[in-house]
Every structure is written in C-alpha cells, then in structure tokens.
Design a protein around this nucleic acid. Sequence first.
DNA 1: TTTGCTGCAAATGCTTTGCATGTAG
DNA 2: CTACATGCAAAGCATTTGCAGCAAA
Lengths: 148, 148
Amino acid sequence: MEHPDLRRAGLKVTGPRLKILEILANEALGSHLSAEAIYRRLLVQATDIGLGTVYRVLGQFEAAGLITRHHFDGETAVYELNRGEHHDHVVCMDCNRVEEFTDDEIESLQSKAAQRLGFEVIDHALILYGRCRRTACPHRLAAAKSEP
Amino acid sequence: MEHPDLRRAGLKVTGPRLKILEILANEALGSHLSAEAIYRRLLVQATDIGLGTVYRVLGQFEAAGLITRHHFDGETAVYELNRGEHHDHVVCMDCNRVEEFTDDEIESLQSKAAQRLGFEVIDHALILYGRCRRTACPHRLAAAKSEP
DNA sequence: TTTGCTGCAAATGCTTTGCATGTAG
DNA sequence: CTACATGCAAAGCATTTGCAGCAAA
C-alpha cells in the first residue's frame, strides 16, 4: 500500500496514522474535529488507539502540513485536513455551525496592513463570530417563540 | 471614591478589583497581560490577592465589557483594557511582539463575506502572524549572523 | 535488527470552583 | 445585616511526556 503523504513527512505508515488520516478525510468539508472526537470515533471502530497517540499523531500531521489546527476563541483545539487552499471561518455563536470562506481582497488588505507596521505576514487567522439564519439554530428558535 | 466602571457593571468596589484594573490601565497600548503576569505584579506590590481571584475578576471584567481576552494561537489567555475602539493584531512569530491596527475596509469586507453565507457578524478575531523588522528580533539577529 | 511507534499512566499547566471567612453597601 | 467577595486549596480539562514493550523497514 502506498502512502505518499505519510512517507513524504518521514513518518512510518502505521495503523493509528492511517485510521486517523482516514477519519479526517471522511469528514465533510467545513467539519472540524477535536482530539476527543477523533478518539471517540476510534473507540467505535473498536481499535485500540490511546488518546495520547491521537494527540501525538495530530501534532505530527500538523507539523507535516497535512492538517490545520484551529482554536475557535480558545476553546479546545479542532483539526481539519488540508485540502489545498487556505480559508477563513465563520462560527455561529448559537449553534456552533462553522462555514468556510475565502476573500482575496481581504487577504491582500491584510498584507498591506502588516507591511505598514513593518511585518511580513506568514500566516493568519480570521474568525468571524455571529449568528446564522439556519432554521434549527437556537437563536432562531428563541426568536420564533417570542413572536408567534 | 467614585468608580463608575465597576458600579455600572454591578460589581462592588473592592481592593482586588481596583488593583487589577489599575495594572491593566497602566499597561502601554498594545501590551497584553496573562493572568499570571498580573498576579506577579500584584505579588510585587505586596498585596494579598490570590491567583484564583485574578481569574475571577478578569472573568467579570470581560463579561462587563471592560476588558478583552485574546488567545493568540491558543496560547494562554491574555487580557487588555478596552479603550474604546476595536482593533486587530499582528504578532511576530520570532519575538512575540504584538502590534495593533484597524482597517475599516477589511471590516466591511468581513461583514459582506459573512452576509453571503447568511451570517450576521457579532464579533471577530483577526490575527496576523509574521516576522517583524525590529533589529532586536531573533529572526533578524539570525539573518545578520549568516550574512556578515 | 534497528529505529521509530504505541499504549498506558502519570505529569503538567491553565483555569475553575467549593467553602469558610471577611467586608462593602 | 445581607449579599457578595476573597483566599486558599482542591478539582477539572486539555494536552504532553516517560517508559517499557511492539512493529515497520
């Protein structure tokens, strides 16, 4: 079995790494998993992988650039498979739904702003916190209840 | 003694609260303190305030909108007194220097991007990670050494 | 075989909390 | 006087690490 991603990263191809990679790959776009969440999915699959290993492997994947770690507001870290292009996030403060987006204009304005301050931008994190229009969103349910 | 900020927040005016507020107020603009850092400054002043209290008070201040908590990349939380207008941050990955900036154009593009996804933006966090041009920055020192 | 990987459990570091006591209003 | 604050120490969580055994190359 070939596994160029792991090989390229100088990591041995092992069961735990493949499983975790698979779990991340099977996630819907825009879905973000915590180490715990990944661990739970591994438990369901009746594997024998420890939480410590999950953290270790995620750390290696991140260092290898295979995945990205996010900290939405300083909550527990969540991870997402890198599928090419960079993107930013919008998080619903009521239902925790996360949407992704990109905006080239914002990106270029960011570089300019940094340049003005004498910085060269290497990376950035842009997270918008707000409320979504989804019908199932707690915020909308509450609003609906008060106006019958 | 008047203390409208605390009063308005429904908080009793007590020694610990005043001290902590004072420490935050005396910080230079763009300076960000962790709970530990605040606690250390309190120790120096020979006060008898516990670290637990520092966390509790900071939580109340944040809830009251007096201060803002940041998590640069998921590191330990740092706090900063709210002095009116919102701003974003640039962090040097080498020397940890933090600069603040605002960019109305970016702000408005953010709202538009969110709107496209059906979100109303309540708050946002924009942090640029990069390298600064400061002479004392480790990155520049290293660069200088390799090109004599 | 050799080097690197894993499970487990213990350790860490930040942050929160319970409780008895103290104090602002 | 009463409600809220505080100090202290213990508890909580997410994450990291040490180590002895296991497995990929």
